[in-house]
């Protein structure tokens, strides 16, 4: 389950920034996660819940912004919403599609006190 290493990275980013600001704890954290980023939100939450008690995010409210994926067809230039990376172009059936959006995995912001 790679989500644990993802969570450890998230905690390291958040804690290092909070410490720079001399904060004692993090009260909120906002993440951007794309639907085709390769991160399972349920696995992410599960991994986070199992380690948060020993981090500065112990009592933090976590907001996850799910970024819906969008693809473009390289043949007919049609842009469409998608749930995966292998859907054929709904307009011309081409498989030459590329993801425009939905691969995001970011710590957007933290709130400290």
């Amino acid at each position: 389950m790679h989500e644990m290493s993802i969570v450890v990275s998230i905690v390291e980013i958040a804690e290092s920034e909070a410490k720079k600001a001399n904060a004692e704890k993090i009260t909120e954290m906002e993440l951007d996660i794309g639907t085709v980023s390769g991160i399972e939100i349920d696995a992410l939450n599960f991994a986070f819940d199992s380690i948060k008690h020993k981090t500065m995010l112990k009592d933090a409210e976590i907001k996850i912004n799910i970024i819906e994926a969008k693809s473009i067809c390289e043949d007919c230039k049609y842009e469409f919403k998608t749930e995966n990376v292998y859907t054929l172009c709904p307009q011309c059936d081409s498989y030459k599609t590329s993801i425009l959006k939905g691969k995001e995995m970011k710590v957007k912001s933290i709130t400290t006190n």
């Binding site: 980013i13 995995m105 400290t112």
Partner: peptide, 12 residues
Amino acid sequence: SHEINLETNILN
């Protein structure tokens, strides 16, 4: 409390 904008890639 104050908000810190990061926009940091998780795998940075």
